[in-house]
């Protein structure tokens, strides 16, 4: 048995509304909000980055897991906005969480699914008894080029998961995981480029939908389950539209989708997105319920998970801030302040 023994999310306090960005570029805010299904997005503080958010989410996960952080054998951090191009985020995080020097640490990058990739690796290590506990984090302070469609959605947030294999500790068993990937250049950022580029509508059908559906079908086949067997669905949420369309394709009712769909209120948190969505579901889920998760990373791939909530969840989630609490705690920025927060002022 392998599963989640602790989880935590982190969403920075600052928000910017679609109206605020649209006004700068002379766009119609209503059309953008409707098109993207996003009202506002989360923006990091001037002193926050993927490493600091990963630590904050990790600290909540640790508090919920109620374990000595020294027992964590692996710390993997997935992000497309690692603070350093060379020098791991994971060592910063492992050090701040006092995991000890015997921790296997590494950074992951797979666009928006780096966090779930890290989770799969953690499962393997724990399941094979190589280590007792493993920490997987997805954390991003995503950037969009000023004026680009991505500027409306690229947001900041993190999700952290501690994986273990003792039944008495597991709050949600990960029953199975699969991946579906192919070389699909729908979105990328070259080594020294500041902002990513993307294929516009090409990011849809051949990328997001093909891979998420591919992973979903593979998971159903592998587990012998059907969509109707799940109580909640969490998809990667680059906007509010894509996950709703996937849900339609799979015949999922809104009430199973909406608990894990937070992007309308915080934007696309990239590597954090599906993990924050899952945390949102775990904050409310009852023992015995079944959760379906499918991430998506451009380039492209999707990791799907079948998760069964256990009795332990009730006690374990008492510690730490919930996703809803993070969402509610907010302060709006003007575009000018946003430009400062995101260091888009070149002379600074």
């Amino acid at each position: 048995m392998v599963g989640i023994i602790g989880y935590g999310a982190y969403i920075p306090k600052y928000r910017i509304k679609m109206e605020e960005i649209a006004a700068v570029w002379g766009e119609e805010a209503q059309r953008i909000k409707k098109g993207l299904g996003i009202e506002e997005k989360a923006v990091p503080g001037t002193d926050e980055d993927s490493a600091t958010m990963a630590v904050e989410a990790g600290r909540i996960a640790l508090a919920r897991a109620e374990i000595d952080s020294k027992k964590i054998g692996a710390c993997y951090v997935g992000s497309e906005s690692h603070p350093y191009a060379v020098k791991p985020t994971a060592t910063i995080v492992a050090e701040a969480l006092a995991c000890g020097n015997d921790t296997m640490s590494a950074d992951f990058e797979f666009a928006c699914k780096a966090g779930t990739s890290a989770m799969q690796c953690c499962m393997g290590l724990v399941k094979s008894n190589m280590i007792k506990y493993a920490l997987a984090i997805g954390s991003d302070t995503a950037q969009g080029r000023p004026g680009d469609a991505l500027e409306y959605s690229a947001a900041a947030g993190a999700g952290a998961y501690i994986i273990g294999n003792e039944k008495g500790e597991i709050l949600a068993e990960i029953e199975e995981t699969v991946s579906f990937s192919s070389d699909t250049p729908d979105f990328w950022r070259r080594q020294h480029a500041e902002f990513p580029q993307h294929g516009g509508r090409f990011t849809g059908l051949p990328a997001y939908f093909k891979h998420v559906m591919g992973a979903a079908q593979a998971l159903f086949e592998k587990t012998g389950t059907f969509a109707r067997d799940y109580d909640y669905f969490v998809f990667h949420q680059p906007n509010g539209k894509f996950p709703r369309e996937v849900a339609k394709m799979l015949g999922i009712e809104e009430k199973k989708l909406s608990p894990g769909l937070v992007c309308s209120r915080i934007g696309n948190t990239y590597s954090g997105a599906s993990l924050i969505g899952l945390a949102r579901v775990l904050d409310d889920a009852k023992p015995g319920e079944k959760i379906f998760v499918a991430s998506f990373g451009s380039g492209a791939g999707s990791d799907a998970f079948s998760i069964n909530v256990t009795d332990n969840i009730v006690e374990r989630r008492k510690e730490g801030m919930t996703v809803e609490e993070f969402i509610a705690e907010k302060e709006y920025l003007t575009y000018g302040q946003y430009v400062k927060h995101r260091r888009k002022l070149k002379s600074l």
Partner: peptide
């Protein structure tokens, strides 16, 4: 909380710590 304290410019190291 865990935050960046300061950075040694755009290319230098980032100093993290408690706030």
């Amino acid at each position: 909380v865990f935050r960046k304290i300061k950075e040694d410019g755009d290319e230098g190291v980032i100093h993290y710590g408690f706030k």
